[in-house]
Amino acid sequence: MDPVSAIALTLGVGWASGINLYAAMLALGLMGATGAMALPPDLQLLASPIVILAAGLMYAVEFVADKVPGVDSGWDALHTFVRIPAGALLAAGSAWSIDPSIGLAAGLVGGTLATAAHATKASTRLVINTSPEPFSNWGASIGEDIAVFAGLWAAVQHPWVFIVLMVAFIALVIWLLPKLFRVMGRIFRRIGRWLNGGPEPAPAAPAGPQSVRDPPNRP
């Protein structure tokens, strides 16, 4: 595997694992089993029929859970402890055969990308779930699944294109995450007030011209 392909695969497995780990494992396993790509030695286990079956089963479970508002946020919270370390391990495995030190560096990069992708997905879903209709949730979930499969295919078939898209994704995350965190903070404060039985704060009155002047100070 040439260096560009190794970099693209490292970035791809880390990013995809943060969004949908089971879809990423299923995609890599199927591409390896069908000969669409030559998996690195440390990732060839993903092409095992048992691993493909397990990844497919868990992907089916996540496919359903990810379409139910509220359940998807709980699923994301639980998978904080699964997607990030798995993304780091898969990224390390994609480059470990080149050199263990490169594999360790790849694991650090992959874990960071998995964290960024997971945080973006989880916070976006939490904001979307404030809407009562389920269609935006379904659209986001299906779009994420398509992005994982298409992104890993691009990382294997068109590594330079994928690397450029990943740089754009990182720039988007840097711009978007602070805004999402501020919205999430307002949501959590509103939930806290509701749980405590407190009233919602009244919206601030719009500023306007002062109708009554302050009386002059008298000596």
Rank of each mutant, 00 (worst) to 15 (best):
M1Q: 03
D2W: 01
V4S: 00
A6K: 07
A6W: 03
I7E: 00
L11P: 03
L11K: 03
G12A: 13
G14M: 01
N20S: 15
Y22V: 00
Y22H: 15
Y22A: 01
A24L: 06
G29K: 14
M31V: 08
G32V: 02
G35E: 01
D42P: 03
L45V: 13
L46F: 13
L46Q: 05
L46G: 02
P49G: 08
I50E: 07
V51E: 04
L53Y: 12
A54P: 03
A54N: 05
A55E: 00
G56C: 05
M58N: 08
V61D: 01
E62A: 05
V71P: 07
D72Q: 04
S73T: 12
W75N: 12
A77C: 12
A77W: 15
V82P: 04
V82C: 03
G93E: 04
G93L: 01
S97I: 09
I98W: 07
P100Y: 12
P100S: 06
P100R: 05
S101V: 13
S101Q: 13
I102S: 10
G103H: 10
L104M: 10
A106V: 06
L108T: 09
G111R: 03
A116K: 06
H118C: 00
K121W: 04
K121H: 12
K121G: 00
A122H: 15
A122Y: 10
A122I: 11
A122G: 09
R125L: 05
V127A: 13
T130L: 04
S131R: 06
S131W: 08
S131Y: 12
E133I: 00
F135T: 09
N137I: 00
A140H: 11
S141P: 01
D145H: 05
A147L: 11
V148C: 04
V148Q: 04
A154I: 15
A154C: 14
Q157C: 02
Q157H: 11
H158P: 02
H158F: 11
P159Q: 01
W160C: 00
W160H: 07
V161Q: 10
F162A: 01
F162N: 01
I170G: 03
I170Y: 14
I174S: 07
W175Y: 13
L176H: 15
L177G: 08
P178M: 03
R182Q: 15
R182G: 14
M184N: 14
M184P: 00
G185R: 12
F188W: 10
R190A: 15
W194T: 08
G197M: 02
G197P: 02
P199E: 02
A202S: 10
A204N: 04
G208F: 10
P209N: 02
Q210A: 12
S211Y: 10
V212C: 02
P215T: 06
P219E: 10
